[in-house]
Structures are given as structure tokens and as C-alpha cells.
């Protein structure tokens, strides 16, 4: 195994941690769009307030594992996805600031609440669009991007993946709210969660099936080395979706309500496995591979050692944070409305 394959472990780890962790807090942001009850909405904000910063650090880590470890890929893909990523950055700014305003009880609450919800939705959408744009293939020439500003849209394909990403994040948000609440809030989360599962299943299937039509990337799931991974990925993904649908429907499972979270994790795992099986070793399809994009050995070695030593520490103190803030939300209104 080449050191660049080893480094891909960190890229994938960062990617996974990010979509899992920020996924659910973005999802919660989208959920507040459907929540009319002021106090319940506040509780949802409260679930996110203390941790979004830690979660977003993983996004920064994705950017840096790619830039430092796969500079060629970063130099091509980021300019190519300019029009998807700049609005993502705008939305991230609006989201962070509106959340602090809500938390500090400053500003005009209805406005901050709206901004928070809409920007969460846009962040998810832009990320999905960027991912779709990348997967369907970006033109490169002589080490830099060679297509037009809208190439990444691939005739609207990126819109489909954008919507799918939002569905995924909403599912994750529902699973988390389901775990962290009870009563009416929990029931509502289950209801929205079921819709998200259905959307996600349709979106994922359509996204992979349409790749060859939309862009320049060719998928060859039947190839000997890919087949087992693709089958396993699809199986785990499908099982996760079914399990999610069921666990949201089963009233007995409601306490303590961990099942949807596990189901969501299975969805993530399956999805990632499938993506890996279909795309690897291409990093910026159709042409740029992990090995071509990698940094020189001296850089990779240094990064691998330093990052490898620090990641366990990071996971430990992030887990400690989750442990300190464990428990269900304090739904003060439950006493009066239940």
C-alpha cells in the first residue's frame, strides 16, 4: 500500500465525521423550519448551540486533508466548484452568527431563527451539489481546472444530489432529536424522519443511476475488484434505510430512542462504502486519481504521524463533551401541554 492510500483514510475519516456530526445539526436547523412552537424551537437551537463549532472543525479538516495531502485535487476541484461552494460559505457565516444571536437572546429572534433554518438548508444543498458536481466529473488540463463556471451542474444533476444531501441531513437531525427528546417533539421528529427516509432512498438511487448520463464519469460496478464492495455497500445502505423507517414507526422503541441513530449510521456507512466501491481510486473524476494527486512522501509522512497521533486525543475530548451534555432536552412545556 502506498502512503497516499493511507492518507486517504484520514480524508475519509474527516469526511465521515463531518457529515455525521454536522449532518445532524444542519438537519436540526432544517427541522426548525417546520416547527411552529416557539419553545420547542428554542430547545432545538439549544441542542445545537454548544457543539456546532466542534462539528464544523471537521469541515475545515476535510479541506486541509485534501489541500495538504492531495494538492492537485484541491487545486482543480475547488475552483471548479466555486459557484457551489461560495454560497455554502455565505450560508455557514449566516448560520453561525444567527445561532449565537439566538443563544445570546440578542437581535430580533424571529429573523435569527429564520436565517438559521434557511442557511442550514442551503449549506446542506450546496454541499450535496458540490459532491454531485465532483462525482459526475470535472474537466482538468495541465493541473488546473479547464471547464466553465457551471460545468459542475451537469444539466441539473447537481440539484438532485443537493436535494438528496438535504434529505440525508434531515434524517440525521430527526434521529438526533428523537434521541434527545420525548413526547410531542419526539413524535414530530419521527414523522418528518419517515418522509426523509423515503426521499433519501429515491434520491440516492437516482443519483447513482444517473451518473453516466449526466457527466463524464464512467461507473463500472461489475468490475471484479469493485463488485463485493458495491454489493456490501448497497446492502448496508438498504438495511439502514429500512431499519430507520421501522424504528421511527415503532412506538415501543421510543425509550431511550437510540434505534434511529444507529439506523442513520448504517445509512452513512453503506453510502460511503458504495461511493468508495464505485469511485476509488479516482479522487477528482474522471481522470485524477488519489496517487496522481498526492503530496510528496516527505509531506505525507510528517502529516500521517502528526495527525495519527492527535486524532485519538481529539476524539477523546470531543466524546467527553458529549458525555458532559448527555441527557434529554428539558422540555419545560411538557408539564403544561402533556
Amino acid at each position: 500500500m502506498h502512503l497516499s492510500d493511507g492518507w486517504m483514510i484520514f480524508v475519509i475519516l474527516a469526511f465521515t465525521m463531518y457529515i455525521v456530526l454536522d449532518g445532524y445539526d444542519l438537519g436540526i436547523g432544517v427541522l426548525t423550519l417546520f416547527e411552529r412552537d416557539e419553545r420547542r424551537r428554542r430547545d432545538m437551537f439549544g441542542l445545537v448551540a454548544w457543539l456546532w463549532d466542534g462539528n464544523e472543525s471537521w469541515l475545515v479538516l476535510i479541506a486541509l486533508t485534501l489541500w495538504a495531502g492531495m494538492p492537485l485535487a484541491a487545486g482543480i476541484a475547488l475552483p471548479a466548484l466555486y459557484i457551489a461552494l461560495v454560497p455554502m460559505l455565505w450560508s455557514l457565516i449566516a448560520r453561525g452568527v444567527s445561532l449565537v444571536m439566538i443563544d445570546q437572546r440578542a437581535g430580533w429572534p424571529p429573523l435569527s431563527g429564520r436565517v438559521f433554518a434557511i442557511s442550514s438548508l442551503l449549506v446542506g444543498f450546496c454541499q450535496g451539489a458540490a459532491f454531485g458536481g465532483l462525482v459526475a466529473g470535472l474537466s482538468a488540463h495541465g493541473g488546473s481546472f479547464a471547464g466553465g463556471p457551471f460545468e459542475f451542474l451537469h444539466h441539473g444533476y447537481a440539484v438532485l444530489t443537493g436535494v438528496t444531501a438535504v434529505a440525508l441531513y434531515v434524517l440525521a437531525g430527526c434521529a438526533w432529536v428523537y434521541l434527545k427528546s420525548d413526547g410531542e417533539t419526539q413524535l414530530r421528529a419521527a414523522r418528518v424522519g419517515r418522509v426523509a427516509v423515503v426521499l433519501l432512498a429515491a434520491g440516492t438511487a437516482a443519483s447513482w443511476l444517473l451518473v453516466p448520463v449526466a457527466g463524464s464519469t464512467t461507473l463500472d460496478p461489475g468490475a471484479a475488484a469493485r463488485l463485493p464492495v458495491c454489493i456490501a455497500g448497497t446492502a448496508v445502505l438498504a438495511a439502514g434505510l429500512v431499519f430507520a423507517l421501522r424504528s421511527f414507526s415503532d412506538p415501543r422503541a421510543r425509550r431511550p430512542g437510540r434505534a434511529p441513530v444507529f439506523a442513520t449510521l448504517a445509512v452513512y456507512a453503506g453510502g460511503l462504502l458504495l461511493a468508495g466501491g464505485l469511485l476509488y481510486p479516482r479522487l477528482v473524476p474522471p481522470d485524477i486519481t488519489v496517487h496522481a494527486a498526492a503530496s510528496p512522501h516527505t509531506a505525507l509522512l510528517f502529516m500521517t504521524i502528526a495527525t495519527g497521533a492527535l486524532i485519538p486525543l481529539i476524539l477523546t475530548y470531543q466524546a467527553y463533551g458529549y458525555w458532559v451534555f448527555r441527557g434529554k432536552v428539558d422540555l419545560k412545556q411538557e408539564a403544561t401541554t402533556a
Binding site: 479541506a63 485534501l66 489541500w67 495538504a68 495531502g69 492531495m70 494538492p71 492537485l72 484541491a74 487545486g75 482543480i76 476541484a77 475547488l78 475552483p79 466555486y82 461552494l85 461560495v86 493541473g143 488546473s144 481546472f145 503530496s295 510528496p296 516527505t298 509531506a299
Partner: peptide
């Protein structure tokens, strides 16, 4: 990466 793509490539390591 967005605005300085070849810088990103050249100094990434």
C-alpha cells in the same frame, strides 16, 4: 483553493 488554485497545488505540501 477556490481563488488561488495553482497556489494550492504548488504550496500544498
Amino acid at each position: 483553493g477556490l481563488n488561488w488554485g495553482s497556489f494550492a497545488h504548488d504550496v500544498g505540501p
